[in-house]
């Protein structure tokens, strides 16, 4: 078991080292629950692997890129995301019901969960530390513009902000504005511009020159 003493943990933002007592507790619980038939090493590894290698933001990026490239798909996605995502087999755990919210030149969207960390797992994978942090959960509803500014996103005058506080069964995915200068691009190229953070609404997609670099 590796100990990473040096990194700065995203959730609290200060140098952090896991107490060995914590690791001991995890080992004890794992042994106990395997002994009691509540978990198996195979099942634990299988589910970790699923979220480390398969279920992640590339899935959501593919959906966004297709919506940019295909008008009919975009219209259906905004109208009935569950039907569209079901066809694509993306209606998995913690994204059983999804609403896609589209940024326009006059409205910007940003997603949070103030009560816990609800997040569209099946489209974006497990949420990043900052999304789960008390600071983000507390501030995204009361000062979304200040939060976005910390991410480097300052909206033009006249753009209103809608904050989506995920509190029940519906999960939210932001469809960002398509970057200018991408006319005629394939879905694959477009997908490279779609970042996880742009699908949460705290930043814009990459610019075309950034992807070319």
């Amino acid at each position: 078991m590796s100990l990473d003493h040096d990194h700065v943990h995203a959730e609290h933002g200060h140098p952090w080292s896991p107490p060995s007592e914590l690791e001991a507790r995890v080992r004890a619980l794992e042994s106990l629950l395997i002994e009691k038939g509540r978990a198996t090493p195979e099942a634990i590894d299988a589910i970790i692997g699923k979220y480390e290698t398969e279920i992640g933001p590339l899935l959501g990026a593919g959906v966004v890129a297709r919506a940019w490239a295909d008008e009919e798909f975009r219209r259906r996605l905004l109208d009935d995301a569950d039907a569209v995502l079901g066809e694509l087999e993306l209606s998995g755990f913690e994204a059983e019901h999804v609403k896609v919210v589209e940024c326009t030149p006059s409205e910007h969207h940003i997603v949070v969960c103030t009560l816990c960390s609800c997040y569209p797992w099946a489209l974006l994978g497990l949420p990043p530390g900052w999304y789960k942090s008390p600071a983000y959960r507390a501030r995204a509803v009361s000062e979304p513009r200040a939060v976005m500014a910390e991410f480097g996103l300052v909206l033009e005058d006249g753009v209103r902000v809608t904050v989506w506080d995920s509190s029940a069964d519906i999960r939210y995915l932001v469809l960002p504005l398509r970057p200018e200068g991408t006319e005629g691009w394939s879905e694959e190229r477009l997908a490279e511009l779609v970042t996880r953070d742009s699908m949460i609404g705290v930043s814009r997609p990459l610019e075309p020159e950034a992807a070319a670099a």
Binding site: M1, L3, D4, H9, R38, A39, G129
Partner: peptide, 28 residues
């Protein structure tokens, strides 16, 4: 609560114990 703690290139899990807690919780 301060500024939002952003970590560039954040891994899915930060350490082995986090991976085990996630997998063990999901199963249990």
């Amino acid at each position: 609560l301060g500024t939002v703690p952003y970590e560039p290139d954040e891994p899915v899990f930060h350490s082995e114990w986090e991976r085990r807690v996630f997998g063990l919780s999901f199963c249990s």
